[in-house]
Amino acid sequence: MTVDELDPVIHASARLKITATLATLPVGDQIAFPRLQELLGMTAGNLSTHLRKLEDAGYVDVVKSHQGRSPVTYLALSRTGRRAFEDYREALRGLLGESA
């Protein structure tokens, strides 16, 4: 395994931070877009762009919902996304010679 072989969907600054943040949620939980944005300190536009990329890869589940009359988007890692993130972290540790 080399750095070039790391999952390109996750191996980029913003998407790594997004997947790392979503991975802290217990399985079965979803986080609202504004709260995720707050935890990441990203602009809404930038976050949306990278979330779409993660969604296209099947790594993030996006659920549109309503709170009263306001629409809220909830996000979570999909099963594929969680596995990809764990594989990515293992691959990084492997490259550094650390065991899991």
Partner: peptide, 26 residues
């Protein structure tokens, strides 16, 4: 799997920096 959006994300450095970024974010 489709990648319709252009990739505007910043490239990452070496594995150690990347792992540190991941752990710092969590």
């Amino acid at each position: 799997m489709t990648n319709r959006t252009p990739d505007t994300d910043e490239p990452l450095g070496d594995p150690r920096t990347t792992l540190a970024l991941l752990e710092a974010q969590q």
